[in-house]
Design a protein around this nucleic acid. Structure first.
Lengths: 122, 122
DNA sequence: ACAAAGCCTGACGTACATGTTAGCGTTAAA
DNA sequence: TTTAACGCTAACATGTACGTCAGGCTTTGT
C-alpha cells in the first residue's frame, strides 16, 4: 500500500514513517516508479516503532533491540523486555497514584451527591 | 534536604531538577543562603515529574495536568488518567508481543536442551 | 492535454530534554 | 586559613523527533 494509507492506518504522519526508515528501523520496498510500498508486515513493524517511541524510547534504543521489531522473533530481543519493564514501573507508579486520586475525587463527588439527594428528599 | 541528596534519591541529575523547576512543575523553597531546600513533598512531586517524562510526556503536557502532581489531588486531574491510559495501550501492546516472543524463544530453547539431554543420555 | 492529488528528496526550522562550562558565593574539614 | 565540596545563575551546545516548504516526478480523472 502507499504512504498515505499506511500513515492513516497507523495514525501517524508520512514524515514519521520516513523518519523511522531513515533511522534504519524500517526497510520498505519500492515500486517501479520509486514510490514506497508498505506490506502488512511493514505496517506491524512500524506500529511497534510508533508504540516504542510514544513510550519514550529513542530510535537509538529501539535500533539496539531491533530483534523486538520483527514479526518472528529471531533473537532474544536484547534486553527489550527489561527496558519495557522499567517503563512499566514508571507508568505503574503513576497509574497507581492517579487511580487513588481519582477514587478520592469520586468519593467526594459521591458524598456530595449523596448529601444533595438527602437534602432534596427531605 | 539539599540538591545533591534530592537528585541522588530520585536517580536523576540536579540539572534535571532545576529544569523541572524552571518549567514551573516544581516550586522549591530556599534556605537563607539561597540554596534550594527540598522537602519530602517536593521529592514525591519531582518523582512523578520524572516518571511522566520518562514515559514520554513533555513538560508542557505535564503542566497542563498539574493537578496530577500534587500529593492531595485538588482537581479532577485534567485528563491525566486518559492520557496515561493511552500510554498504557502502547506499552501493553508492546508487552504482549514481547512476552509472546519471549516464550517462543524459551520454547525453542527448552526444545533444544531437551534434544541435547536426550542425546547425552543415550 | 491539463489539473488535482500523490509520491520523493533535501533542507531548514522548532521544541524539548539535557549536558557542559564559566564565574562566583558558601560551608565545613584539615 | 586554605582547600575541597557543594550551591547558584546564565549561557551555550547537542541530540532527537518532527513540521514544513521547495522543486520536481507520476498517475488519474475530466
Amino acid at each position: 500500500m502507499q504512504a498515505k494509507e499506511a500513515a492513516e492506518r497507523l495514525g501517524i504522519t508520512q514524515r514519521m514513517l520516513r523518519h523511522y526508515e531513515n533511522e534504519g528501523l524500517l526497510d520498505v520496498g519500492r515500486t517501479l516508479n520509486g514510490y514506497r510500498s508498505y506490506t502488512e508486515v511493514d505496517l506491524r513493524r512500524a506500529g511497534r516503532v510508533r508504540d516504542f517511541i510514544a513510550t519514550g524510547f529513542s530510535t537509538r534504543e529501539i535500533r539496539a533491540m531491533s530483534a523486538c521489531l520483527s514479526d518472528e522473533g529471531a533473537g532474544p530481543c536484547e534486553g527489550g523486555l527489561e527496558k519495557l519493564k522499567e517503563k512499566l514501573e514508571h507508568i505503574d507508579r503513576l497509574r497507581a497514584e492517579l487511580d487513588e486520586k481519582r477514587s478520592a475525587v469520586m468519593d467526594r463527588l459521591a458524598t456530595l451527591q449523596n448529601g444533595l439527594a438527602t437534602v432534596s428528599s427531605r
